[in-house]
Computed example of a mutant assay.
Amino acid sequence: MNDVFGFVSLIVLGCGIYTLYAYIKMKKTGEINEILLLGNAYVAKKCKNKKAFLEKALPSVLVFGIVTTIYGVIDMINSFVKPVGIVDTIANILFLIVLVGFLVYTTKLKKQYF
């Protein structure tokens, strides 16, 4: 069973690293990462104000990327190196709070700018 959680921690870490990469790329290019921010229902070309959308979305992407990466590392340590119990639980709760906040916030932004 611990192998399954270890696999999940690898996926979470990969998502965190991808999110940080997407943040850097969006910051440099000014293009919206459709996979991370929009999903299938929206197309970046239909954004009413791409610059304003990115200005509001990028801070949440950065926070989400940092928290996800840190949680992935903590969970990997918990799964593969040494159980850290309460630290992993706190990181998990923080990750879930940030994840829900990110989803709610970006959904509001999509409704406002698309």
Rank of each mutant, 00 (worst) to 15 (best):
N2I: 12
D3Y: 06
F5A: 09
F5R: 11
V8S: 11
L10Y: 09
I11V: 15
I11F: 11
G14Q: 11
G14K: 09
C15I: 15
G16Q: 05
G16W: 00
T19W: 02
T19I: 06
Y21F: 13
Y21N: 09
Y23K: 04
I24P: 00
K25D: 15
M26H: 03
K27V: 03
K27E: 14
K28R: 12
N33V: 06
I35C: 04
L36Y: 02
L36H: 03
L37T: 02
L38F: 10
G39S: 07
G39H: 06
N40Q: 13
A41V: 11
A41E: 11
V43P: 00
V43C: 01
K45I: 04
N49R: 04
N49G: 07
N49Q: 10
K50H: 03
K51Q: 15
A52E: 14
A52V: 07
L54Y: 08
L54C: 08
L54N: 06
K56F: 03
A57C: 11
A57L: 07
A57Y: 01
A57H: 02
P59N: 10
P59L: 07
V61P: 03
V61D: 04
L62C: 10
G65W: 00
I66W: 03
I66M: 07
I66Y: 02
V67G: 02
T68Y: 05
T68A: 06
T69N: 05
Y71E: 12
G72C: 10
V73N: 09
I74K: 04
D75F: 13
D75Y: 14
D75G: 07
D75K: 09
D75L: 13
M76V: 08
M76F: 13
N78K: 02
F80H: 10
V81D: 10
K82R: 14
V84P: 04
G85H: 14
G85L: 11
I86W: 07
V87Y: 12
T89A: 12
T89I: 10
I90W: 04
I90T: 05
N92A: 14
N92Q: 13
I93Q: 06
L96T: 14
I97W: 04
V98K: 01
L99I: 12
G101S: 13
G101V: 08
F102H: 09
T106A: 04
T107E: 13
L109H: 01
L109Y: 00
K111G: 09
K111E: 08
K111Y: 03
Q112G: 07
Y113V: 05
F114K: 04
